[in-house]
């Protein structure tokens, strides 16, 4: 009996040692710090700054992706009829994030490389699904990216990750992302992928959120949960503003 226990302990120990051995052969993940944890959308919000930093082995590179949650989208497809451009149909584009910004490291042209590594817009393309009552044009993905880029919600930014020497055979990376003011409230993911020996290495992720605060939160709450009160208040304030302005102008000289 004791012998069996001993065998079992030996097997467990051996399997753990093998696991540890494999683990040490795995690429080393990047240490990753994202600040702030919460981006506050206040009255004077005009976009936020997101700082991403960490350490990676000095021989590696790191590619950072900032993504929002997947969303379902309904779009109008435009086409020409006679001399006029008009809506020719509708298309659903699903399984694509609301925000996707890729931050590429300095000192190298990553265009073809990221495609080969399956990172960037090419990965989005493979995940995206479309449906609609009519034929969907083959260039739909390009059109979608163009629209999202126009809104500053999608982008591939070159030389956005900079390096500085670190300690213990490591280097320090830093990236600062200007989040667009049109960013939606919700949770977002920062994903740092190390590139070692021209191959995808370890992946580290961190979360951050975008939240409305103060007056902006109050207005949205009123507009969503107290709709009639919100509408009537908006009218009363507008009426008062108009009439007060009328009185002010009358007192400041009148129009007669």
């Amino acid at each position: 009996m004791n012998r069996n226990y001993f065998k079992l302990i030996v097997i467990i120990c051996a399997s753990q040692m093998i696991r540890l051995g494999i683990a040490t052969a795995e690429p080393m993940p990047a240490s990753l710090v994202v600040t702030p944890k919460t981006v506050a959308v206040d009255t004077f919000f005009s976009g936020g700054k997101l700082s991403v930093s960490g350490d990676i082995p000095s021989a590696d590179d790191v590619i950072i992706e900032v993504t929002g949650k997947d969303s379902k989208n309904l779009f109008d497809l435009k086409g020409k009829m006679g001399p006029f451009w008009m809506t020719r149909g509708k298309v659903h584009i699903d399984n694509v994030p609301g925000l996707y910004i890729l931050l590429l490291p300095e000192g190298r042209d990553w265009g073809k490389k990221i495609k080969a590594l399956g990172i960037g817009f090419s990965r989005l393309k493979s995940r995206m699904t479309t449906s609609g009552p009519q034929d969907i044009p083959p260039e739909i993905f390009k059109m979608f990216i163009k629209l999202k880029k126009f809104q500053s919600l999608y982008g591939e930014l070159k030389d956005a990750v900079t390096y500085a020497p670190g300690s213990n055979d490591k280097k320090h990376f830093t990236a600062v992302l200007n989040l667009p003011s049109s960013i939606a409230q919700g949770d977002y993911t920062v994903r740092a992928t190390t590139i070692a020996n021209n191959d995808v290495g370890a992946v580290t992720t961190r979360e951050f959120s975008v939240e409305e605060v103060g007056f902006i939160k109050f207005v949205n709450h009123m507009a969503s949960d107290r709709r009639v009160l919100y509408g009537v208040s908006a009218v009363i304030i507008a009426l008062l503003a108009g009439l007060i302005m009328g009185v002010v102008f009358k007192q400041s000289g009148g129009s007669h």
């Binding site: 309904l74 020409k80 001399p83 739909i140 059109m143």
Partner: peptide
């Protein structure tokens, strides 16, 4: 706006 090609042929529904 009706005769000049739009900058993208995709637009958010409801616009």
């Amino acid at each position: 706006g009706l005769v000049v090609p739009p900058h993208t042929l995709l637009a958010f529904h409801g616009g």
